[in-house]
Structure formats: structure tokens, C-alpha cells
């Protein structure tokens, strides 16, 4: 809601955005604010930059610095070659992509259906179901009970163990239900008068109007699956099935499978550090690519559904 309100507010404000009654801020206050915010932004960006620069830097430069680079002396894509041709990282990349795509689709389908049914006023059993879902916030299932469920379902070492235990997120469900409840009721009335069934109403009327919330919730799910690291440690014994984050973890802390490469003159051509950082960049890339497109939906989607009281 914050950002939605912000949009409306912009129209009534001048370019400086100051209402008439507000006094002009002192230059020193403004300067302090500008400096603080600039530093904040730089502190967020700096670690990204160091990682990107290191991933492209030549081996001897990284070695001379002791493991990092702020500006590559020459831009070298060798580390990316290594990561994208290495068997274990490419397989992990595929696992992560598969789990993210299948998982997000399954999660969205379940969440949309359940949220839609719970958003209709007076549906039989709706209240008790909602209370059951909200109770999971107060008392979440712990790691050991979840493990026992996955174990008893025979899902250990199955890719489904990376999807099913986190398939519906109660927060996302509540956000989506709130959004559906905010849609004007007349839409449903007229559709039902035309004889449309619930599924048709959902697919042809509700979903096209809910692109924003679906995009945001879809992003939350996709990020969750893509970033998942621990569930693979917990549920998979077969390390060849590990997703990217788990492989990245082994690569960064133990240097799993990285060998130093030297030229004929004995100069380090490919620093292990560059390979690690290139893997970090590749593991971050999908989020960085999708983020700007979804980010504008934060205003419309998430907060109108969630923050209303």
C-alpha cells in the first residue's frame, strides 16, 4: 500500500514534492540526507561490484591482491567458461532451473486456487480452513517433523523433496486472498448470471485482473526455490542431485573440484577465486534479471493485498 499511496500523492505535489505548509528544509539537513542515502546505496552495491570484478579479473591480478579485484586489469571470461563447462555446476544449474520452474508453477496453481476459494464470502468451511492456515504461523512445523514426513513419503533423494515441503506459503496465500477480496463483487455477479462456473470466473475474469499480485507472489516463490540451499542438504543424500546454491556452497567454502590452472611460464591464468565469484554471479543473475521487471508490481500487487487494516 505504501507505494500505491505514493503514486497518488505524486499527482498533488510539485516537483520538489513539498506541500504548501511545509517549510523549506535547511541545506545542511538536505546534504546530510543525500550523503546518508548515497552511502547506503554504495554499501549495497559495493559487494556486488567486488564479486563481479573479481570474477572477470585475470588470475595473477587476483593472486597479487590476495583474492580480490576492484577493477579487472583485463576482462577475462575464463572463469565463466569453466563454470559453464564444468559438469557439476552445469548439472546443478539445470536442477535449480527445473525445480524453480516446476515448483513455481505448482505453488502458484495451488495458491491461486486455494486463495480464490477462500476469498469467496461464506464458502462452507472457509473460516476453519483459514484459521488452520493462520495457526501455522503461530506454531510452524519444525525441521525434524518435516524431515519425518518427507522420509515417510519416500521422498528422500527425490527432486520432489525440494518442492513439496515448501509448496504453499501461508503468507503468499494471505496476500493473494486479500487481493482477490479487493476485486469488485459485481464482476462475479454478472459472470455468474451469464452462467460461468467458478473455474471459468477464476481463469477468465479474476486472473487477468490479478496479474500484479500473481507476478509478485510468483517472484516470491521463484526466489524461494532458486535460493533454497538447506532443504537439499537435509533431504538429498545423493550429491549429484544438488541444486546450484548447495553446489555453490561447496565450491566457495571448500573449493570443491577447482584446480589451479597455470600457463607454460608458470603464471596463474585462472584463479580459483575468480571461478568461485563467477559461480556467485551466475547464481545471482536470474534474480538480478527478473527483479527490475517485477519490482514495479510491488506497489500494486503485494501491499494492497497484505497491508490493510
Amino acid at each position: 500500500m505504501s507505494l500505491a499511496v505514493e503514486d497518488q500523492q505524486l499527482k498533488t505535489e510539485d516537483r520538489a514534492g513539498r506541500p504548501a505548509w511545509m517549510e523549506k528544509p535547511k541545506p545542511i539537513t538536505q546534504a546530510a540526507k543525500a550523503v546518508t542515502l548515497t552511502l547506503t546505496v554504495l554499501m549495497v552495491i559495493l559487494p556486488f561490484w567486488v564479486v563481479i570484478a573479481t570474477s572477470f579479473a585475470p588470475g595473477d591480478q587476483i593472486n597479487d591482491n590476495g583474492g580480490w579485484a576492484l577493477w579487472p586489469r583485463e576482462w577475462n571470461v575464463g572463469a565463466y567458461d569453466w563454470v559453464l563447462s564444468n559438469e557439476s555446476t552445469t548439472r546443478a544449474l539445470m536442477v535449480s532451473l527445473g525445480v524453480t520452474i516446476v515448483g513455481t508453477a505448482a505453488s502458484l496453481a495451488c495458491t491461486i486456487l486455494l486463495a480464490y476459494a477462500l476469498a469467496r464470502p461464506g464458502v462452507v468451511g472457509g473460516r476453519i480452513v483459514m484459521l488452520m492456515i493462520l495457526f501455522t504461523f503461530l506454531f510452524p512445523a519444525g525441521m525434524i517433523p518435516s524431515y519425518l514426513v518427507v522420509y515417510s513419503l519416500g521422498l528422500i533423494d527425490s527432486y520432489w523433496s525440494l518442492i513439496l515441503p515448501t509448496m504453499v506459503n501461508a503468507f503468499n496465500l494471505v496476500v493473494m486472498r486479500g487481493f482477490f477480496q479487493g476485486l469488485p463483487g459485481e464482476l462475479f455477479e454478472s459472470a455468474r448470471l451469464d452462467g460461468a462456473g467458478e473455474l471459468r470466473i477464476l481463469l477468465t475474469i479474476v486472473m487477468p485482473l490479478s496479474k500484479a499480485v500473481i507476478a509478485v507472489v510468483g517472484l516470491f516463490y521463484a526466489v524461494g526455490y532458486w535460493n533454497a540451499w538447506f532443504n537439499a542438504v537435509l533431504y538429498l543424500n545423493d550429491t549429484s542431485k544438488y541444486p546450484l546454491q548447495t553446489v555453490l556452497r561447496g565450491l566457495v567454502t571448500q573449493g570443491d573440484g577447482i584446480t589451479k590452472e597455470f600457463s607454460n611460464e608458470g603464471v596463474l591464468t585462472q584463479a580459483p577465486q575468480a571461478i568461485k565469484m563467477a559461480t556467485v554471479v551466475i547464481a545471482t543473475m536470474p534474480i538480478l534479471l527478473v527483479y527490475p521487471f517485477i519490482q514495479r508490481y510491488f506497489a500494486k500487487g503485494m501491499l494492497t493485498g497484505a497491508v490493510k487494516s
Binding site: 559487494p47 564479486v51 532458486w226 535460493n227 540451499w229 546454491q245 566457495v252 556467485v280 547464481a283 545471482t284
Partner: peptide, 9 residues
Amino acid sequence: LSWVILVAL
């Protein structure tokens, strides 16, 4: 970002 990536950063 995942915690794995954050720790690496």
C-alpha cells in the same frame, strides 16, 4: 539474495 550468496559476498 540467498544466504549462501550473501555469505560469499
